[in-house]
């Protein structure tokens, strides 16, 4: 579903990604694990078209991305951002936010689909005309997930979707993402620094460090705390004793 071949990205003099390659199968949940500066978010930005200055080969579903060119990807891939406060327009109601993608693509039955989506992400229908500041962090993140799913894309990019949330709310959002994935057969590419979240959510993972993939592993290896690379082991150690 997602294919990344020899992806390199440079910002001026510094190279932030050194020919990174990986594949994600349909319906799979793949984690990019790393600390800040590892380049994990840059991969998402390249896949979502926010960064177009890259070399290599990128493909999502049937769409081949070209460097220097913003592809029309809305129905193929959508993203859930880390900060539920910055990712919603402060003056637009939930209804505005959720019907916007439908309006852009001229799709019918907006009212019905907005209500159905509110149900799907577990938001009460009476919230429909609320503004973001009337919602809690967890509720906002549900709106962000709903917005990402309005056009039924097969792929979701998740950029640390729960790291800004309280732990009890994190559990609700992770459960929701997992249910939606099973229901709709979604493919997830999750960026995170949180190992336990990967254990819960993902099937496979890649560990990134300074723009290179250190190790690719099955989640079973992570759960058994048996990653092969030294850096992987170090991450496990810190996660348990940090």
């Amino acid at each position: 579903m997602i294919s990344v071949r020899d992806l390199s990205v440079r910002f001026g003099e510094t190279t932030v990604l050194h020919s990174v390659s990986f594949d994600v199968a349909k319906g799979e949940s793949f984690a990019l694990l790393g600390e800040s500066g590892s380049g994990k978010s840059t991969i998402l930005k390249a896949l979502s078209g926010q960064v177009t200055d890259w070399t290599g080969a990128l493909q999502i579903a049937d769409t081949v991305l070209r460097p220097g060119h913003r592809a029309r990807l809305a129905r193929t891939v959508q993203m859930v951002f880390q900060d539920p406060f910055g990712s919603l327009h402060p003056r637009r109601t939930l209804d505005d936010t959720l019907s916007e993608p439908l309006a852009i693509h001229g799709q019918p039955d907006r009212d019905k689909r907005v209500l159905a989506m509110l149900d799907a992400v577990g938001l009460p229908r009476r919230f429909r005309f609320r503004l973001p500041h009337q919602l809690s962090g967890g509720q906002r993140q549900r709106v962000a997930i709903a917005r990402a799913l309005m056009l039924d894309p097969p792929v979701l990019l998740l950029d640390e979707p729960t790291s800004a949330l309280d732990v009890s709310v994190q559990a609700e959002i992770l459960n929701l993402l997992k249910s939606l994935q099973e229901e709709k057969g979604l493919t997830f590419l999750l960026v995170t620094h949180d190992l336990p979240v990967v254990s819960f959510m993902c099937d496979r993972l890649a560990i990134l460090r300074a723009g290179r993939i250190e190790e690719m592993a099955d989640v079973a290896a992570l759960r058994a705390a048996r990653l092969e690379s030294d850096y992987g082991q170090e991450l496990i150690r810190r996660s348990q004793h940090g």
Binding site: V167, Q170, A171, N175, K178, L195, P196, F200, A224, Q240
Partner: peptide
């Protein structure tokens, strides 16, 4: 409700 490194639960218990 915190996920663990050796997580095997299908859903996390919600508070």
């Amino acid at each position: 409700s915190l996920p663990r490194l050796d997580e095997t639960r299908d859903r996390l218990p919600v508070l």
